[in-house]
Write a protein that binds this DNA or RNA. Sequence first.
DNA 1: GGTTGAATTGAACACGTGTTCAGATAATCT
DNA 2: AGATTATCTGAACACGTGTTCAATTCAACC
Lengths: 198, 198
Amino acid sequence: MARKQGSQAAITGPNIRDAALRLFARHGFAAVSMRQIAAEVGVQAGALYLYTPDKQALLFDLMRDHLEDLLADWQPGTDAAEAALEDFVRHHIRYHLDRPDLVFIAYMELRNLTPENFAVIEALRRRYEDQLEAILKRGVAEGVFDVPDTKLATLALIAMLTGVTTWYREGGRLDRDAVETAYWRMARRAVGMTRDMK
Amino acid sequence: MARKQGSQAAITGPNIRDAALRLFARHGFAAVSMRQIAAEVGVQAGALYLYTPDKQALLFDLMRDHLEDLLADWQPGTDAAEAALEDFVRHHIRYHLDRPDLVFIAYMELRNLTPENFAVIEALRRRYEDQLEAILKRGVAEGVFDVPDTKLATLALIAMLTGVTTWYREGGRLDRDAVETAYWRMARRAVGMTRDMK
DNA sequence: GGTTGAATTGAACACGTGTTCAGATAATCT
DNA sequence: AGATTATCTGAACACGTGTTCAATTCAACC
């Protein structure tokens, strides 16, 4: 027997992606089998190969799409450095809180990419970091930031901001707005902006 | 045939730990087999079970010992909050740069612990975080820190500091001292210490 | 209503998994 | 020198792995 009732390719494809995302985030790429993903979708393992060439591509596509979305979702404006940094920080927090599983995977499963795929993902991540570093450099040029090493500060800030995903839980003590503001307060101080917050 | 020449339990035990640490850090717990670990030590897979009850215990022991060392290695002093924070920050950076593989595993492989083991590790990590939070609370009480939410600030700071392990490479542009100082500069500002650095 | 073709199954392949254990070996002790 | 014991091997167990593919089923079109 084959082809269950009500099956549709337009549904199965995204379903597979969603199931893979959820399972990879929960148990890790190496610990999840194609059969588990198939079971989650309600399909046999062989059917997955109509939608992905292999397991590796499943992981790579999730990561690449995530980082491309992240890059597309924030464009550097012409604001002064201070406003640009606030925009970046708030956007980063919001974006990451909205996609905890994708963020988690993109940080945790780099080891499981083939070298070629790793290079692609690493380049995308680098482009994102460069956007923050550009803001920091601008702020230093404008004289509003005091950052002796913009590269190090970039990495330190991103690590701090991304860390929010490790503890934030919906319905917890702080809502998203409060978290955004708290991180923005720390970030602005970390780069040497000491004036009181508006 | 069995028992190769020159074999010694006092050597094999630590060798297994070291090999497991290295391989887990490089490829991830789930992606490393007992046979790979055994091969790295120069022994057959069965011999591993003279030194560990199972693969899970290998991972758990690495994590627990790491966190217990981390806790034992830093004791809160009676310093003022400012000095205590500097001590904590510099110690954290130094400790983490010295043990990149252990740090990596302790953050990445939490998913692969059994629930019981996870609870133990999580409690140890919590104890470490509490030490930083105690410093922040003390600073707020002393009036030298401006931190509205000490719990959030603790997690933000630890994420920032621990992030150093993701990019620092021996022999790179910055030496350990420069890294320590750069992070300390950002950390002290993040908690609202705005006076110039000595 | 019959044909076509996309969607899916289920079995198979070759190999890898963690773990156990009887048996073999070499170091140690008497 | 001989017995003992800690140390390790090698084979086995039962099962899981990613992937392929002929066969099958159902929906859509003529």
